[in-house]
Amino acid sequence: MTEAKDVFEVRVTKETLGEGSESGSIILWMYPEGARVQRGDVIAEFLVDKITLEIQAPATGVLRIKVPAELAVADGALLALIESY
């Protein structure tokens, strides 16, 4: 098994949440755990209040899901990792 060359974090940020919202939640992971995704792919839908946002893969690599769908997460929460080889 090869070691990951780089690991990219997908986190909730203040920009994701916008002003006035403290948390949001993943509605849907579009790829399963361990799927190979490409940089820029929409990998999840994220709901903040009534607004659905897209979460894109920051890098090409393997998706490691860290937070299940339908769980409230706040600023800074780690949603996923993308391991690139």
């Binding site: 509605i27 849907l28 992971w29 579009m30 790829y31 399963p32 190979r36 995704v37 490409q38 792919d41 839908e45 090409t60 690599g61 393997v62």
Partner: peptide
């Protein structure tokens, strides 16, 4: 690499009807 080819790596994803 296989996962870098859109036709192979991203042949399908789980989507909502809306999307």
């Amino acid at each position: 690499a296989p996962w870098e080819s859109p036709t192979l790596a991203n042949a399908s994803r789980t989507l909502t009807m809306c999307r």
